[in-house]
Write a protein that binds this DNA or RNA. Structure first.
Length: 443
RNA sequence: GGCGCGAUGGCCGAAUGGUGAGGCAGAGGACUGCAAAUCCUUCAAUGCCGGUUCGAUUCCGGCUCGCGCCUCCA
């Protein structure tokens, strides 16, 4: 069996993955802040690390997958203040929508899906340890992490502290001992959510939550931590600093994995451009499986340009794959070349190329089983096709086809072609079979 | 300004120190009343300038272009 190799952002090298405990591999992936619908940029890490999870599950007997909801954040609070709704109704609503959207994309539910608001005591415990160990200090109601006290700070993102200070664009808060120090705990203004703490009522900073949730469910040392490349600094850098400094033997994640950025039609996705694509909207126009397939068509570390053309191509390819998989008569196996590609740092484009080869060879059985490791071809041709035909009046289509076949029998080609055009206008493509029957599919 | 990432055919996208996968699109053919689908065949690429090397798309340096992050901030 091929060895699984993964690129570790820490050190930027590809290496054979060796779990701490082969009997139970632990992985943590930063989840969404639940104050709005998930966009396609949120979907990429979810899908990419879901594939990693499936590959790991093929190799190891047990995988513990943890992904959180961030439900304490000023963005959420602002959304609550603007809409007049309680914070919980916003976070609950968008957490549910997120899970439904991810399910539609074929993402397996995490084994643990902790929420920041449920993990505040653990955050406070870490902060207390950091203060006790001389890595954090209290100033004006805030608790700050003492960045110079951690010599490895900046190792993940490749930044020295001096560089950060030289490049800082933001005014430094006066109570910071060092400009690089960041907030672990802060006071809440009136009307904001608060928790009691040894430093007064307040709320946690952003970064501490992932340290607390990862530690709670995976321990002080675990195998893999994933997330978007944009989280490398400061979020992941700070997670490392807190977790490693809070305990004697804490190493935190051993392998860091980051997926590349996502653009839309060649432009960066942003509210100001108005090109933010929500998964929820995309799902109205394409099956989730096609969205997933499109996202996997480039390597996870490469920048990804989401395009309508790419989505259409993914849809067409899946129709072809389902058509071939439908011919399978015996159980298949995971194709070795396909699996080798995935073991080489999740080379999904190369793996998909192998799926094309299996399809071309008419090997529907192996195609289906292999594709399922990517979270694809889990259904069958019938249910896949049904997604496209659901808006079509099948009785009307059947009636038109009957009329057309009558015209064909009479060799009235003009009438036959007219009806075919009429069907095409309804979004129906027809196929005259050798046995004289006519079948159709939605376009 | 600092740090980092990327650049392969018309488009998407792998790989590699020694004749550069696969998909989409295009072209030709088979099939079809004509199509569609399918099958066969086929065209076509390593951003620019140097260096190392017998040989560079790959390694090193510089450049151009595109992108991300720069600390609790949208």
């Amino acid at each position: 069996m091929a060895q699984l190799k993964l690129t570790n952002s820490m050190g930027r090298r590809k290496a054979v993955f060796e779990p701490l405990d082969p009997a139970n591999v632990g992985i943590y992936v930063c989840g969404p802040t639940v104050y709005n619908y998930a966009h396609i940029g949120n979907a990429r890490p979810a899908v990419v690390f879901d594939v990693l999870r499936r590959v790991l599950m093929h190799v190891y007997p047990k995988v513990t997958y943890v992904s959180n909801f961030t439900d304490i954040d000023d963005k959420i609070i602002n959304a609550a203040l603007e809409s007049g709704q309680p914070i919980e109704s916003i976070t609950n609503k968008f957490a549910d929508i997120y899970n439904a959207d991810m399910k539609a994309l074929g993402v397996l539910p995490p084994d643990h899906q902790p929420r920041a608001t449920e993990t505040v005591p653990e955050m406070i415990a870490i902060i207390e340890n950091l203060i006790a160990r001389g890595h954090a200090y209290v100033a004006e109601g805030h608790v700050l992490f003492d960045v110079p006290s951690f010599k490895d700070y900046g190792k993940l993102s490749g930044r020295s502290r001096d560089e950060q200070i030289a490049g800082a664009r933001v005014d430094v808060a006066p109570y910071k001992r060092d400009p690089a120090d960041y907030v672990l705990w802060k006071p809440s203004p009136p009307g904001y959510p608060t928790w009691d703490s040894p430093w007064g009522a307040g709320r946690p900073g952003w970064h501490i939550e992932c340290s607390a949730m990862a530690e709670k469910h995976l321990g002080l040392n675990f195998d893999i931590h994933g997330g978007g490349l944009d989280l490398t600094f400061p979020h992941h850098e700070n997670e490392i600093a807190q977790s490693v400094c809070a305990y004697e033997h804490a190493g935190f994640a051993r392998v860091w994995m980051h997926n590349g950025f996502l653009a839309v039609e060649g432009e960066k996705m942003s509210k100001s451009i108005g090109n933010v694509l929500l998964v929820n909207d995309l799902l109205k126009h394409a099956p989730g499986e096609a969205i997933r397939f499109a996202l996997l068509s480039s390597h996870y570390r490469q920048p990804f340009d989401w395009t309508q053309h790419g989505l259409e191509e993914a849809t067409t390819t899946l129709t072809r794959f389902y058509t071939v998989a439908d011919t399978a008569t015996a159980p298949g196996k995971v194709d070795p070349e396909f699996f080798d590609a995935l073991c080489d740092d999740l080379n999904t484009p190369l793996a998909i190329a192998r799926l094309h080869a299996l399809a071309k060879a008419g090997n529907g059985a192996d195609l289906k089983v292999s594709a399922q490791m990517l979270g694809l071809l889990g259904g069958d041709l019938k249910t896949w096709s049904a997604w496209f035909t659901k808006a079509i009046d099948t009785a009307a289509v059947d009636s038109l086809i009957t009329q057309r076949n009558a015209a064909r029998s009479a060799k009235n080609w003009a009438e036959s072609d007219r009806i075919r055009d009429q069907l095409a206008a309804l979004g129906v493509a027809i196929k005259d079979n050798k046995d004289g029957t006519t079948s159709w599919s939605a376009t």
